[in-house]
Amino acid sequence: MKRILVDTNLLLEGFEINNEHKYILLSHVNRELDKHKVHGDGELKFKARRAVRFIEEHQDNFEFDVKDYKVSFDEDFDNNYTDNKIIQACIDNGYSLTTNDLLLKQKARMYGIDLVESDGKVSDLSYVGYREIAPSDSELALLYENLKKNTYNLLTNQFLIIKNNHGFVLDKLRWNGEEHVKLKHSPTKKIKSMNHLQDCAIDILLNKEIPIKIIAGNYGSGKTILSVKTALYNVLDKGNYAKIMMVRNPIGSGKEIGYLSGGKNEKTEGFFKPFIQHLDGGDQEAYFLEQRGVLSREIPFYMKGLSIEDTIIICDEAEDLDVKLIRLIGTRLSSNSAVIFAGDYNQTENEYKNNNGLMRAIDKLKGNPLVGIVVLEEDVRSNASKVFACLE
């Protein structure tokens, strides 16, 4: 069995575990991951969190080396540079090394360290739907003078979050495939944005030119409430669609309560509470909307063969769908219909961890002009809710 040291770069990008090896993590690498989780940009933060979850899920394959290595293999190399500590650890312990960093590979070859090629990038999410920049005054002026130029190589419907050097958001734009455009803001007080990423989500949710909307992200980040409020506005206030269909795959965390009597509606009623809690009138409003034919509830099992017209579908807890179910729901769309997939891939139930349809959809559909994607981050539910974020 080889003992292979893994560097930060490879952990951020992802790799497949080979059960024949033991993977070594240095304390220096762990500190870099922690730093990126807090101080990185949006995509880097996500990748660092993903790497930490990956290590936790494969903890039996990893071994932690907590020694604080002092660089002695060459007096000209900086002792505070993590790559040099990696080289020193390999020399001291006979570790092999796996990395995608070309300079680190070259340095490892210089000192005769065994290099192991990674077994390929894991199929995991790295696209968050936006890019954050902190341009200089001249770069900012150039951007606004050339709004039809894709200066930052954005995908279609990817957002550009413009910040100053202190992290304050100056502006938000979306590349629509032809030019950078301003975001659509909430036209009603019933749809409230709590942060700049929710602004991006609202822009997607209100845009009829983007019929496939994926709002992903952490618990408490506002996925469901924004989906429900914008759907109600689109149907009841604007008349963009005639109906709302709530879709949920009826599985969940915790212990089952056993056999439930009644028909489909009675058996699945509890799974639709996250939708209904965001109706101003709660259960009573849901009842009246259903009686008028404006609101319906469905589960994927019963959707095969349906053709859904003039409807906005809200598929909540979409992390609990495999690729087949995502495809099943999406292919129901007929004329003048749209679908919202809302989910937190961090809360995926076990049976969908290795075949996660939401993550696959984001990876495969990004950049399609009919698709809008944004991954929300901040928990806006409450300060108390944030306390439990550390329980990973």
Rank of each mutant, 00 (worst) to 15 (best):
K121L: 12
I257T: 04
I24M: 10
F159A: 11
N30R: 10
L11P: 00
E117C: 00
Q291Y: 11
M110R: 09
Y219G: 15
Y23H: 13
K45S: 05
D379R: 06
G282S: 07
A231P: 04
N207I: 11
I340G: 08
I225L: 11
I212G: 12
G281R: 07
V52E: 15
K149H: 07
I191N: 05
K85G: 05
P369V: 00
L12Y: 13
L5G: 08
S296H: 09
V323P: 00
A338G: 09
G220H: 11
M110T: 14
L226Y: 11
I113G: 11
L260D: 00
F64Q: 13
V235H: 03
R332C: 05
L115S: 05
E377G: 14
W175V: 04
D322G: 07
Y130F: 15
S296Y: 07
E309I: 10
L289F: 14
L147I: 03
A231D: 02
E285R: 08
S382V: 05
G330M: 10
Q88M: 06
L321H: 10
I312N: 03
S382G: 07
K353D: 01
H58C: 02
A338F: 01
R332S: 03
E16L: 15
Q59F: 14
F15H: 13
S138Q: 08
R292Q: 14
K304M: 14
K37R: 15
L25T: 03
L147M: 01
S382M: 10
K172V: 15
G357I: 05
Q106T: 05
L289C: 10
H180Y: 15
L328N: 01
K70S: 10
I340E: 03
R174T: 12
L260E: 01
E179Q: 08
Q284S: 09
L33P: 01
R131F: 07
I313R: 04
L333Y: 04
I55A: 12
N164I: 04
K37Y: 10
S27C: 00
L183C: 12
V235C: 06
L226W: 08
I212M: 14
Y241M: 03
G263Q: 09
M303G: 01
E145H: 00
Y241Q: 01
K37P: 06
D137H: 06
Y69W: 02
L155W: 05
K223P: 03
K192G: 11
H180I: 02
V323Y: 08
T156Q: 12
V371N: 00
V235W: 02
S227G: 15
Y130H: 07
